[in-house]
């Protein structure tokens, strides 16, 4: 099945080679979870996926946890937390 992955900000670097902008369409097997997808893309998961994740996970516009199973045509967006604001240059 084919899904769309959108990775924002600090996660853009984990898009597959050849991706344009912040999204990629990739072929994956049935039954894949978001947690599996993150592992596939090499996105670090700091804690047991059962208990949550560092990232905000949006599948087809709805907030989900990392254990949600993906289906053909799904659009998965991962939003990392961003510390930035004023940006400390002189720290």
């Amino acid at each position: 099945m084919r899904i769309e992955v959108r990775l924002f900000a600090t996660l853009r670097r984990y898009l597959p080679p050849g991706s344009k902008g912040m999204s990629a369409r990739i072929d994956v097997e049935e039954g894949l979870t978001v947690s599996d997808l993150m592992a596939r893309l090499g996105i670090p998961q700091d804690r047991d996926p059962e208990s949550g994740t560092t990232y905000l996970i949006i599948v087809n516009g709805e907030q989900h946890d990392a254990q949600v199973t993906l289906h053909d045509g799904d659009c998965v967006s991962l939003y990392p937390p961003l510390a930035g604001g004023t940006c400390r240059d002189n720290s």
Binding site: P81, A83, G84
Partner: peptide
């Protein structure tokens, strides 16, 4: 509610590291 716990130090680069 969005981010129950902070990312581990170093996992998310700061602005001064990454630029803006």
């Amino acid at each position: 509610c969005m981010y129950p716990e902070p990312p581990p130090p170093g996992m998310v680069p700061s602005c001064d590291e990454a630029g803006v």
